[in-house]
C-alpha cells in the first residue's frame, strides 16, 4: 500500500475568518498558522501546500499578556552602520496594527519557498470589514 500524497491542484481549500478582538496574539497566530499549513487536515502532506485561506479581522484589538505592550520590541537592521531600528509593540500597534498578527504568524510557518506561498494565503485587516465576503469565510471559534 502506498501512503497517500496530496496533489497541489486537488487540495480542497476553504476560507476561514478569525476575529482577533480581545484574543491573545499567540493563540490567534497558532490557529491561523495551522489552518494555513493544513496541519488540521487528514491529507496533510509536508511538501505540498494543503492549507486553507485565513482572514483575520480586528487586528488592532488583539491582546498581549503581561507587560509585553511596553517591553516587547520589534527590531530590524538594514545592514548599514547605524541602521538599527526598534519599535515597541505599542508603537507598532499605533503605526500598523496588521503587522503584529502578520509577523506572529510568519514566525510559525516554515521559512522557505513553500512557507512563503503558504503565508500569502493570510489576509489581515484592522477593523471588522474585509473584502473577502464573496468567499464566504467560515468563522473560527477560539476557546
Amino acid at each position: 500500500m502506498k501512503t497517500f500524497s496530496a496533489k497541489a491542484n486537488e487540495v480542497p481549500r476553504k476560507w476561514w475568518i478569525i476575529d482577533a478582538k480581545d484574543q491573545i496574539l499567540g493563540r490567534v497566530a497558532v490557529k491561523a498558522a495551522n489552518l494555513l499549513r493544513g496541519k488540521e487536515k487528514v491529507i496533510y502532506t509536508p511538501h505540498v501546500d494543503t492549507g486553507d485561506f485565513v482572514v483575520v479581522i480586528n487586528a488592532e484589538k488583539v491582546r498581549l499578556t503581561g507587560k509585553k505592550e511596553e517591553q516587547k520590541t520589534y527590531m530590524s537592521f538594514s545592514g548599514f552602520v547605524g541602521g538599527h531600528k526598534s519599535e515597541t509593540a505599542r508603537a507598532r500597534r499605533a503605526r500598523h496594527p496588521e503587522l503584529l498578527v502578520e509577523r506572529a504568524v510568519r514566525g510559525m510557518i516554515p521559512h522557505n519557498k513553500l512557507g512563503r506561498s503558504v503565508y500569502r494565503k493570510l489576509k489581515v485587516y484592522k477593523g471588522g470589514l474585509h473584502p473577502h465576503t464573496s468567499q464566504q469565510p467560515a468563522t473560527v471559534s477560539l476557546p
Partner: peptide, 10 residues
C-alpha cells in the same frame, strides 16, 4: 512521523 501527524489531525 507523517502518519502520526495525519492521525493527530484526524
Amino acid at each position: 512521523m507523517l502518519w502520526i501527524q495525519r492521525l493527530n489531525a484526524a
